[in-house]
Write a protein that binds this DNA or RNA. Structure first.
Length: 393
RNA sequence: GGGUGCGUCGCAUAGCGGCAAUUGCUCCAGACUGUAAAUUUGGCGCCCUCCGGGCUUCGCAGGUUCGAGUCCUGCCGCACCCA
């Protein structure tokens, strides 16, 4: 099979399979986020039991701690963290956005956490202030060392609102960075192919597995139609294994996301996977799938879980659509759940819902027991992964 | 019996003549989108036409003062010390 195969197409929605070094993934799929080498609160075994096919790690965080050399020495991130499956790594591009934003919010902190130049981005470790310089080449080098199955180019994710001029300049730089990433990646891969030929007989590369990581480009351009389209064309010209749409859900009005998909998707090759970065709420994911997106990742299910916000199916049999009516969220810490002995979600089969009441979970949150965040994370991830299952039907 | 200190919004604290009154916790509600995040924002005497305004509060009762949580007197309660 090709790296990516569409098995079924219903209008714009695509159901297929994506081949990686660590196995084949059913698309469309959702990636739980394991920024620092762990999905917060959950073990890899639990993730697997929930039906997670692939997880996401972060280049920037793992570079700082424990360091990509150490991870490589341990046999790659999969082995290091005992995740027996595919993994995508984000390039650290998002941190240019989020750490710079953080700096802006905390005006007292004049040290500055991110400095951008043509060469790359200078970061300061939020914990100890130490300087790091990330470049497109460095990002790829780290991702290769981590053993990533899907490598993202190093990009800049501009904030919203963002002026046209800034978006344009940022986009042009991001395009040059994408080219540098690809060049560096191709060089490294062809070198390592020579390496693997030498020991080829010892390597077990089955038919269902790829012998190299995939490299994805990232479409930027903020909320400007021509910039988004220009970005998509540039990346397609360079040629990537897949295409991501970045810089979405950074504070822009909800309708803009729909517009961005409308502008960009027709320009992307049908036979390559498409990844909507950082999205999103369940209805946003459902909408994007209906419009031809194959991959997602988001902190919402795990972060909101830790903060007591749970996703609950509204109906036993749901057909997720772009309409925002197939679920609701409840804040389990609310007083009204104090004596509510019903399951978290009567339509959910997860470990938390099968064994514990709302009253118990509320109690755990109110006394600060770590099990609270664990059970809530299990439930919310189950919700997201089941949602994807439904969207694959 | 004598002495000293202390009583402030659930708890704990600040306040030393202009105060509906600090801060922390608890409590209540909200936010969270390629994780800076088990984080964070708001509310927490009562009432209103809720921008703003009114009323009632700092153990209790008096007093001094234009004005008292703050000063004075007495009482009640608590803590400690000496008998």
């Amino acid at each position: 099979m090709a790296d990516f195969e569409i098995r079924k197409k219903i209008k714009s929605r695509r159901v297929g399979k994506l081949k990686t070094m660590h196995g084949v993934i059913d698309t469309p799929f959702f990636m739980p986020i394991a920024t620092k080498g762990a999905v917060k609160n959950l073990s890899p075994k639990e993730l697997q039991d929930l039906g997670a096919q692939i997880i996401l790690g972060n280049t920037y965080h793992l570079w700082l701690r424990p360091g990509h050399d150490l991870v490589k020495k341990s046999g790659g991130l999969q082995k290091f963290m005992d995740w027996d499956g595919p993994m995508l790594t984000d390039s650290g591009g998002y941190q240019v956005f989020s750490l710079a934003n953080w700096k802006a919010e905390k005006k007292r902190d004049n040290r500055g956490r991110v400095k951008l130049t043509e060469k790359g981005a200078e970061f300061r470790d939020p914990l100890d202030g130490k300087k790091y310089f990330m470049t497109p080449e460095k990002s790829i080098e780290i991702q290769l060392a981590l053993g990533s199955d899907i490598i993202m180019v190093f990009d800049e994710c501009p904030p919203y609102p963002c002026s046209r001029e800034y978006a344009k300049r940022s986009l042009e730089r991001t395009a040059r960075w994408a080219e540098r990433c690809k060049k560096y990646f191709d060089k490294k891969i062809s070198n390592s192919k020579l390496e693997s030929l030498k020991i080829g007989s010892k390597l077990k590369i089955g038919n269902s597995k790829l012998n190299r990581p995939l490299l994805f480009g990232i479409v930027q351009g903020s909320v400007y139609k021509d910039l988004r389209q220009e970005s998509a064309r540039q990346l397609v010209n360079l040629g990537f294994d897949g295409y991501a749409i970045g810089g979405v859900a950074v504070g822009e009005p909800r309708e803009k996301m729909k517009k961005i998909l409308e502008w960009v998707l027709p320009l992307l090759p049908e036979d390559k996977p498409r990844y909507l970065m950082g999205l999103g709420r369940p209805e946003e994911i459902a909408f994007a799938v209906e419009n031809g997106i194959d991959m997602f990742d988001c902190v919402i299910p795990t972060r909101n879980a830790r903060h007591g916000s749970l996703f609950v199916w509204k109906y036993a049999k749901i057909k997720p659509s772009s309409k925002n009516n197939f679920y609701k969220t409840i804040n389990i810490t609310n007083e009204k759940y104090k004596k509510d002995f019903k399951p978290l979600d009567k339509n959910c089969g997860c470990y938390a819902c099968q064994n514990f009441s709302r009253a118990y979970l509320r109690h755990l949150f109110s006394v600060g027991e770590p099990l609270a965040g664990r059970l809530a994370s299990i439930h919310n991830l189950n919700f997201y992964l089941k949602l994807m299952e439904k969207l694959r039907k």
